[in-house]
């Protein structure tokens, strides 16, 4: 069924994604050269102007802007985004081993699996909790259960992640000593950061699942299905859900993207050795090539999520397949 039209559609979507990537990364390129002098950071306030200039030359920061920009664009295309200024050289950063290579992209890629693990666990957990909650509330509107779900999901979207993370650490790690405060390696380590990150997605997905299910359940085809003696459970979980799925998938996609940005803070709070924490570290030491490599990967993740959501749309909505 997935036709040539769909193929063309995805070629177009891929092209817009690449343009988006170049635009966003260009902003990053100009911005990260304004946030303070990396050479001065390395050498300290006592270094002479000459020493600083020499280091800036070695870092490539003295080249004309357009030369730097050209190098940057070619670097993204070729997968070689330059050497780190100081990662693992001056002193090993919080979590990493001293890397074999000074190339930024491999260093950043090494931090990808923990982030994918945390993000995946977060979204999986969120969907598993939120979808049944939203459906449950929608099939019994205005009951006590529905109101509870409403209050909880509202709380979920209102509470500040960072604050909630600290509460979780205080309660489960410090007070109860059930779970580790930070680190990586065992299943127990993923629980608290995933919980902290999933609060908002759970709230949002529950709200959207509830409201889009309510919309669908009020439609004539639901009444007709009831008249055919189809059990309520099946009406909700097949008939209504199939049509409510598009807004729900959109929200899951949006929330997954929010998680990608959320990991930047949460990984730092929980000492989780992912790409988010590495971004913060790179920013702290003005390691321009490393900042660029980490953000490059984060943006790639966001674009990939968008493409996946699009792909799911075509499966869900029979009309999209025909380019309508």
């Amino acid at each position: 069924m997935i036709s040539a039209i769909t193929g063309g559609y995805f070629a177009r979507r891929l092209l817009t994604s690449i343009i988006m990537l170049v635009l966003v990364m260009s902003v990053v390129f100009f911005a990260d050269r304004q946030i303070g002098d990396p050479a001065r950071m390395v050498l300290g306030t006592t270094a002479t102007e000459d020493d600083v200039r020499e280091l800036r030359e070695r870092m490539g920061l003295e080249d004309p802007m357009w030369v730097q920009y050209q190098r940057f664009i070619v670097g993204m295309a070729s997968g070689d985004m330059g050497d780190t200024f100081r990662y693992g050289i001056s002193k090993p950063l919080n979590h990493g081993e001293i890397p074999d290579s000074r190339k930024t992209l491999p260093i950043a890629m090494d931090r990808l699996p923990p982030t994918l693990l945390l993000g995946g666990a977060t979204i999986l957990f969120s969907v598993i909790v939120a979808l049944p909650l939203g459906i449950y509330a929608a099939v019994r509107p205005r009951t006590f259960g529905d109101r509870m779900v409403n209050v909880l999901s509202l709380a979920g979207v209102s509470i500040v992640e960072y604050w909630f993370a600290l509460i979780l650490i205080l309660l489960f790690a410090v007070q109860l000593d059930w779970l580790p405060t930070s680190g990586y390696g065992t299943a127990a380590h993923v629980v608290l950061p995933a919980l902290a990150l999933s609060l908002r997605p759970i709230g949002r997905i529950t709200q959207i699942a509830r409201s889009s299910m309510l919309d669908e359940l009020a439609k004539p085809y639901i009444t007709a299905a009831r008249g055919r003696g189809i059990p309520l459970r099946k009406i909700a979980s097949v008939h209504a859900l199939k049509n409510a799925a598009i807004p729900i998938v959109t929200t899951i996609g949006d929330e997954t993207i929010n998680v990608v940005t959320g990991v930047i803070i949460i990984e730092t709070v929980f000492g989780w050795p992912g790409i988010g924490a590495l971004t913060v570290e790179a920013l702290a030491i003005r390691d321009v090539p490393l900042i660029e490599a980490t953000i490059f990967l984060l943006v790639l993740m966001v674009l990939a999520i968008n493409l996946i959501v699009d792909l799911i749309y075509t499966v869900l909505n029979p009309r999209v397949r025909f380019g309508a």
Binding site: Y221, A224, R228, G229, K242, A245
Partner: peptide, 24 residues
């Protein structure tokens, strides 16, 4: 009654276009 409805007693609606599930 659910077992009777649709099986022994069934119904055709006025507007079939809205009475059919668009997603299935």
């Amino acid at each position: 009654t659910r077992r009777i409805r649709g099986d022994r007693v069934s119904m055709v609606f006025q507007d079939a276009v809205t009475a059919l599930n668009p997603g299935l």
